[in-house]
Computed example of a mutant assay.
Amino acid sequence: MTTHSTRHSLSTLEMMRRLIAAPSVSSASVHHDQSNLVVIEQLHEWLEALGFNTEAMPVPGHPEKANLIATLGSGPGGLVLSGHTDTVPCDPELWRSDPFFLTERDNRLYGLGTCDMKGFFALAIEAAKHFLDQPLKQPLIILATADEESSMSGARALAEAGRPLARAAVIGEPTRLQPIRMHKGIIMESVRIQGRSGHSSDPSLGANALEAMHAVMSELLTLRSELQQKHRNAQFRVDIPTLNLGCIHGGDSSNRICGRCELEYDLRPLPGMSIDGLRNAISERLRPLNDRFGVKIETHSQFPGIPPFETPADSELVRLAERLTGHRAEAVAFGTEAPFLQSLGMDTIVMGPGSIDQAHQPDEYLALDQISPTVALLRNLIAHYCL
C-alpha cells in the first residue's frame, strides 16, 4: 500500500525540471502555438498520486488544450492556488543555456517558465505536501490553465463553466511575493477602412482610405484625452488609461488614391471602466466618418480582451496577504487571469515568486532565495483557508 510519506519523494527542483522540459508555448501565431497537454498530464499524475481528486477539462474549440482542477478535501469554501501552464515563444539562440533545461547558476534557476510561471506549480505542490495527512475543513484546489499568454481561452472556459469555486484564489504570477489587488484591462483592436483607389491626379475618382484613417486617428486621440481627463487612479504608476496607436498599413503607391488602410491599437482601461462600453463608444465616434469620406469603416477585436481587475483593499485575502508578506497590496499594468476567477465569486489576488522583469525575455530565471519564502507563504495561506 502506498502511503503519503512515500508518495512525495520527488523534489521541488525535479518537478520544476520536468515542467520546464515540456514545451507548451501558446501564441496567436499557428506557427508558434503548441499543446499544453504534456504539462497537464504531468501535473495530473503528481497530484493524483498525492491524493488529490483530479479532473482535466478540455478547452472548447482548442482540442490540444486543457485545464486541470485538482482538489484535496471536499466541501464549500477553501483556497485556489492558480497558475498557467503555457509560456511565451522564445529565441533559444539568445539564451546562455537551453531554455528547456533547468540550469542552476549564480543562485538562480534559469529556464523558460521558471518564474512565468511553471515554477509556481512545483512550489504549490511542495506547500501542499505538508497537509496530506491533515483533515482539511475546506478544500485546497490547485488550478492549472491553458493559453494565458495568448487568448486566455482556458480561464474564459472556466468562468463559463462556473468552476472552480472557493472562498479565495491566489494566482502565482511573478510579483516578488508582493500582493497585487489591481491591474488594468487590455483590449487590442483594429480599424479597417475600405475606400476606392484611382489616379492621384483626380481625387474625385476615388475615396482615400488614408485620409479617412487620419480622421479615425484624430477621433481616437481625442477620445484618449477625454478618458484620461475623466479617469485616474493614483495606485498605478501610470495612473491614467492609455491608448497606443501601434501600427498602420495602407496604400501601395504615391500616385494612387489609397484604397485600403488598417490601423491596430491597444487600450488599457483602469478598474471601473467597461470594455464593452469602450468598444461601443469607439464605434459610435467612428460611424459618421463613413459618409463623410465615402468609405466603409469596420472595427475588429484582435482577441476578446482582459477586463480590468480590482479586489477591495479591506478584503480578507488582501489583509491576510499584507500581514503575511509585510507588503502593502499594489497595482500593476500587466493583465492576468484574476478577473475571470474573481467573476466566479472568489476573493482574488495575484502573488507569486520571481519578478515580471525576468519574464518574456532571454535567460528567464527564478532566484533560489524565493523558493523557501514562497513555500512558507503558501503553507500559511492553506492553513488559514483550509484547516
Rank of each mutant, 00 (worst) to 15 (best):
A321E: 08
L278W: 02
E45A: 09
V25I: 14
V375G: 08
G73D: 15
L387S: 07
A28D: 12
Y365H: 11
Q42F: 06
L132N: 01
R260M: 11
T2L: 14
S97A: 09
L158R: 00
S11M: 03
D357C: 08
S372F: 09
S150Q: 07
S315M: 02
Q34E: 15
P58C: 04
F131T: 10
A166Q: 01
I248Y: 12
H231N: 00
T2A: 14
Q361L: 11
K184Y: 15
M1W: 12
K137T: 01
Q229V: 12
V39N: 07
P99Q: 03
K184F: 14
A166I: 12
T2G: 13
V59E: 00
N233S: 12
L47G: 06
E226Y: 05
S372R: 07
H327F: 08
N36E: 01
S11D: 07
A21M: 00
T348E: 14
R17N: 00
T374F: 03
A338P: 13
E211M: 10
L68M: 05
L123C: 04
E48S: 15
I186Q: 07
N280P: 09
F236S: 04
T145N: 07
S151C: 07
L320A: 03
L47M: 10
E322L: 11
E264Q: 15
C258H: 00
P139G: 07
V191D: 06
G305E: 09
L112D: 00
S200D: 11
D239Q: 13
V350D: 06
S355F: 08
R279W: 03
L81K: 02
A157L: 00
S315P: 00
L158I: 14
D147C: 14
L263H: 01
G250R: 03
V25K: 06
P203D: 10
E262P: 03
A329N: 01
P269D: 13
N36G: 05
S218K: 05
C90E: 11
L223F: 11
N36C: 08
G246E: 05
S82L: 03
E126D: 13
I141R: 04
L132H: 00
P271M: 03
V318S: 06
V25N: 01
G326N: 07
Q342H: 08
D266P: 14
T2Q: 12
T374C: 10
S5W: 07
G272A: 05
L387V: 11
P362E: 07
F101L: 12
K184E: 15
R167Q: 15
P269V: 13
V318F: 03
L243Y: 06
A333W: 02
A383N: 02
E189C: 04
G294E: 11
M1Y: 10
T175L: 12
G78A: 10
N208A: 10
I349W: 00
L140V: 07
G119M: 14
D106A: 10
L19W: 01
A66C: 02
Y265S: 10
G294C: 04
A313L: 04
G61M: 02
V350W: 07
L278F: 06
A281P: 12
M152N: 05
S225I: 06
L37I: 02
A169E: 10
P339G: 11
L243A: 05
A338F: 02
I349R: 04
I349N: 09
D252A: 11
R323W: 09
R285D: 15
S218V: 09
N67M: 12
D239M: 11
A49E: 13
G326W: 00
L378K: 02
M351Q: 04
